[in-house]
């Protein structure tokens, strides 16, 4: 099974070879509420670790989605534009945001694994 890692800003990244699929966590979508809009980056955009990669909006909140690691955007989930509700219904499945060609796999080591992230989230409430 592919490795899934989490950032403190509640993004997840699932690594498949050189490519990382990025989205926001179930906790993040719950905090936002019904997602109404996403702004996705252009393909080919280079993002730095922690840099702004996308924007996600609910009715009453807007937040940036940060790149958990550096890389180049190689794909975006166009389905989200027409159906942003996918982020609520399937945050770690059909609600993925973008795919990154990883610049430095070593950065993955700075992220949390599933268990560590669960512990991190439990500490927030």
């Amino acid at each position: 099974m592919a490795q899934v890692k989490y950032s403190k800003e509640h993004e997840w990244i699932r690594v498949e070879g050189d490519i990382g699929v990025v989205g926001i966590s179930d906790y993040a979508q719950q905090q936002l509420g019904d997602v109404v809009y996403v702004e996705l980056p252009a393909i080919g955009k280079k993002v730095t670790k922690g840099g702004e990669a996308a924007v996600v909006e609910s009715v009453k909140a807007a937040s940036e989605v940060y790149a958990p690691v550096a890389g180049e955007v190689v794909a975006v989930n166009d389905q989200l534009t027409a159906n942003p509700a996918l982020i609520n219904s399937s945050p770690q499945g059909d609600g993925w945001f973008l795919k990154l060609k990883l610049a430095n796999k070593g950065e993955l080591g700075d992220l949390m694994d599933e268990a560590a992230y669960a512990k991190f989230v439990a500490g927030l409430s």
Partner: peptide, 12 residues
């Protein structure tokens, strides 16, 4: 579409 506005987006 209030997320465009100052009371949510503030400096952005």
């Amino acid at each position: 579409l209030s997320t465009r506005e100052q009371h949510i987006r503030r400096e952005k």
